[in-house]
Amino acid sequence: MIELKSQRDKEKMRLAGQVVAEVLQILKTAAVAGVTTRDLDAIADEEIRKRGALPIFKGYHGYPASVCISVNHEVVHGIPGSRRLKPHDLVSLDLGAILDSFVGDAALSTFVGEAPDETAALLLKVTEEALYEGIKAAQPGAHLGDISHAVQSHVEKHGFSVVRDYVGHGIGHQMHEDPQVPNYGPAGRGILLKPGLALAIEPMVNVGSYDVDVLDDGWTVVTRDGSLSAHFEHTIFINPDGPEILTRIDGKIPV
């Protein structure tokens, strides 16, 4: 069942989203050579709680940390631990917080220092652009598949691949609500998008094949071919005049 949210709900979701936006920027700055992923998790937990929110990931289906940290060929759901970041690592940070019974969820990818090569730099650029292409397609009266098609088209135009096994989702009182939001598929299909719909759109993009595997820890998703992967995500709300980003500090869609 798809639940439409009110404007009051949106404002509460925005507050949760701003917590996520602020803490992600802190984590991005802290992701330097020599820091452990466990160090970053401790920062995430402290900064979320400092803002009066709770880390929604911690304990979610048994997940043991406050932030998912995926490095290089890890796609999503990496568990923080003793790993020390090295120069040129590609680090994906996925963070969720709950505040006043509403959830914010967002992700970004960054390099430790400089990108290792031009392909890696392009991967990051294209994945973030694909997220915003998907958001721009989330117009009232459009179809869910228009989001999916916008993401996939942009990614594949640059020779990269979109992960099929993991998708975006509805969001609100729960982190994962209906509908699912694939990052691939034909335009013009799926449900009609209506004002009040809140979605987490999150392209996961690989340099090589879109095939993935899950490690023995039961969480960490990796590219099957060992190629680099990037991940960007925002929580959005569809207004009568178009989408609004709730997990970006200025709330605007980049031109």
Score class of each variant (00 low, 15 high):
I2N: 02
E3F: 02
S6D: 10
G17S: 07
V19H: 00
V19N: 01
L24N: 03
L24F: 05
Q25E: 15
I26W: 04
L27I: 07
K28M: 07
T36K: 00
D39W: 11
A42K: 00
D45N: 09
P55M: 13
G59S: 02
Y60T: 01
Y60S: 01
H61P: 00
S66A: 15
V67H: 04
V71N: 03
N72W: 13
V75T: 08
H77W: 07
S82I: 09
S82D: 14
R84D: 06
P87K: 08
D89F: 06
S92C: 02
L95P: 11
I98G: 14
L99R: 08
G104L: 11
F111M: 10
D117Q: 10
E118C: 03
E118L: 14
L122A: 14
L124S: 07
V126P: 03
A130E: 02
Y132W: 15
I135Y: 04
I135G: 04
K136H: 05
A137D: 14
S148P: 06
H149I: 01
A150I: 03
Q152G: 07
Q152L: 04
K157F: 03
H158E: 14
H158T: 03
G159P: 09
V163K: 09
V163L: 09
V167G: 02
G168Y: 05
H173L: 00
H176A: 10
V181T: 07
N183I: 02
G185I: 04
L192S: 14
G196I: 11
G196M: 12
A198G: 10
L199Q: 10
Y210K: 11
V212H: 07
D213A: 14
D216E: 15
D217P: 10
G218E: 04
R224W: 11
G226L: 13
L228T: 03
S229W: 06
H234D: 15
G242I: 05
P243V: 00
L246D: 11
T247D: 10
I249A: 08
I249P: 01
